[in-house]
Design a protein around this nucleic acid. Sequence first.
DNA 1: TTTCCATTCATACTTTAGGATGATTTTGGA
DNA 2: TCCAAAATCATCCTAAAGTATGAATGGAAA
Lengths: 165, 165
Amino acid sequence: MLTANELRMKWHAITRNRQNILYGLSLAVLLFLLKWLELRFLIIHHAMEIYIGMVAVIFTALGVWLSLKLARPKVQTVIVEKPVPVSAPATFSMNTVELDRLGLSGRELEVLQLMADGLSNQEIAGRLFVSLNTIKTHASRVFEKLDVKRRTQAVEKAKRLSIIP
Amino acid sequence: MLTANELRMKWHAITRNRQNILYGLSLAVLLFLLKWLELRFLIIHHAMEIYIGMVAVIFTALGVWLSLKLARPKVQTVIVEKPVPVSAPATFSMNTVELDRLGLSGRELEVLQLMADGLSNQEIAGRLFVSLNTIKTHASRVFEKLDVKRRTQAVEKAKRLSIIP
DNA sequence: TTTCCATTCATACTTTAGGATGATTTTGGA
DNA sequence: TCCAAAATCATCCTAAAGTATGAATGGAAA
C-alpha cells in the first residue's frame, strides 16, 4: 500500500511534468492530424498550398503556445518602505553630521553626556579622574561651541540635535 | 525643413513599428524560401516529409520568436516590506500617575518645564512675572519632591518619568 | 621640526543655584 | 466660613556654576 505521503509525492511529480505531458499529447494529436491531412491531400493535389499554410499556422500557434507556457515570468521586486511605529526609542543614532559641524572633541562630548545625566562638575571630575578646573574648562568650551550659556541649555540643545540620547 | 523635434518624433514612430517591420521582412523571406523549396521538391518528390518537417520547425520557431517579442512580458511583482524606523513619537502623553504620586503642584510643574528649556531662575521669574525668590522656592520644592539635588537631575528624572516632554 | 590642537590644571573672580527659615496672600473645598 | 494647600516674597548664607586668563604637555599633521 502507498502512504499518504508517497501519494502526495507522486502527485507532485505528475504536476511537475504536466507541461511535458501536454506537449507530448499535442505532438501526437498533430502527427495524427498531419497523417490524416496527408491522406486527404494525396487525392486533392491542388490543395497543397492550403496544406502548407495550415501546417504553418498550426506550428506557429504551437510555438506561441509553447513560449507562453514555458517562458519564465520576470520577477520584479518592488521594495515598499513600510513605516513601522518603532515604539521603543531604544535605538539612538548619533547625529555625526551635527557633531562634526560643532567640532566637539571627545572629552567635551563625554563631559556633555555626564552633564545630561545630572552630574555636577565635581562628580564629573571624579568620574573622569581629573580636576574640577579641567571640567570647568571643558564645560566652557562646550557652551561656547553649542552657543549656549548654561548647562541646562547645553543638554537641551544636544538632545534636540541628537548628539546625545 | 524638418526641425529637430519633428525628426525625433519620426524616429520614435520608426522604432515603435520596428517589430512590425521585422515581422513583415521575416514573412517575405519565408515566402521566398518556401517558393524555392517548392521548386526543389517538385522534382524530388520523396523528400515531402522533410519539407513538411522544415516548415513545421521554422514556423514553430517563428511562433516562439513572435510571442517572445510581441507578448507582454509576464511580470511577477514581489512586494518586500522594508521597515523604516519612523522618527520621533511626536505624541507626548504625560504620565499623570507619576505626577500625582509626586504631588507636584501646577506652578511647580510650570517651573520644571521652563527649567527643562534651559532657562535660568531669573529668566523663569521674568517669564512668570514673579520674583526670583519665588522661583527659588518653587525650585526647592520641586527638587524635594523629585528627590534630586540639582536642576539638571530634576530635568533628567522628569523626562525619564514622562512628566515633561 | 614646527605648528596646531586636545587635554590638563591653576588662580581669581562673578554669577547663579540652592538651602533654611519665616511670613503674607490667594484660593478651592469641607 | 474656615482651613489647608498653593503661591508669593524676603533675607541670609553656602555651594556650585560659569568666566577670564595663563600655562604645561603630548600627539598628530604639515
